[in-house]
Amino acid sequence: MFSYRHAFHAGNHADVLKHLCQMLLLEKLCNKDKAFVYIDTHAGAGLYDLTSESAQKTAEYQAGIDALTDAACHNPHIRAYLKLVEQYRKQNRYPGSPEIARRLCRAQDSLQLMEWHNNEVQQLALNFKHQKRVKVHHRDGFEGLVAITPPKPARGMVLIDPSYELETDYQVLPDTLAKAYRRWQTGIYAIWYPLLAKKRDRSQGMIEAIGRGPYSSVLDIQLSVLPQDEELGMYGSGMLIINPPWQFDQQVASLLPELTQALGQGGAGDFKVSWLAQQD
């Protein structure tokens, strides 16, 4: 239980999609001078060494961030993401979502980072020990999200990125999200989920449950890099965005063709942007 370590997957195609969406959302929040809070419910270690035994065992970053770097994309959002990641990649590292948030958030903004895994939270605390605006919580992210909402200031975003190692995550997440939303309806919620083989897929039921929730605006973004298998494997991933900012959907739609071409494996790859709920 709780054996998941993100170091095995750092910089893969799922991280690329997730972190592009995260950057766009944080940039939207930074467009106004007013301070905001960034909440990460499953923060991991925050920064990853791609020369480590864990990263080298799977080398998923080669078909993710490295493939995107080699693709010479022209989309300005992709180029901004690559520019941010470049300095880490030169040091054989990759920034997790907490580090990306630290880079993009301003002096007046705060970061609330949660992690339950003992080793991961120790590394997370070490990576951010000199950051006064960052608070690290050793707690379950689902429980913690409800406990700290509504935050102060009541402006900001939540990234929910569980491992889905436990099948119960697919049920706990929609329930937790609804509870947090009832307490904080103005926040932006970004939820990552995997696209798995047909016999392992649980994401569709979770998406449908969230689509039936109390939300006025829900955007669904999906990126596949392989054909869906019957038995095994993750062929892509998705992001659900609750309360997406104005024109966020257009920005994501503009980068997905190049992203799909760069990350699609063996000529495969596809994307979809759709509304599960849309405010009139």
Rank of each mutant, 00 (worst) to 15 (best):
L263T: 01
R200M: 11
V158E: 02
Q279L: 14
H117P: 05
I148E: 11
S54T: 10
I100F: 04
M206A: 06
R202L: 12
F36T: 08
A71D: 08
I191D: 07
I78K: 12
N243A: 07
H137A: 05
G269P: 00
E99Y: 13
G144S: 12
T149Q: 10
D220N: 14
D70H: 13
S217F: 04
A190N: 05
P162S: 05
N75A: 14
A107E: 12
I241F: 09
E231Y: 05
R139E: 08
P162Q: 03
R202G: 04
A7M: 06
E167M: 11
Q91I: 03
A268F: 10
I207C: 09
E167D: 15
L223Y: 03
N119W: 09
R202P: 00
Y81H: 11
G96F: 01
I78L: 15
S52Q: 08
I221W: 05
R182P: 01
V273H: 07
P257C: 05
E230Q: 15
L263F: 02
N127T: 05
D175V: 13
G267S: 07
D40N: 04
I242W: 03
A154Y: 07
V172I: 13
K152M: 14
P150V: 07
V225L: 01
Q261G: 15
D161W: 02
Q87L: 15
A180F: 00
R139V: 00
L20I: 15
A268Q: 13
G233S: 14
L226Y: 04
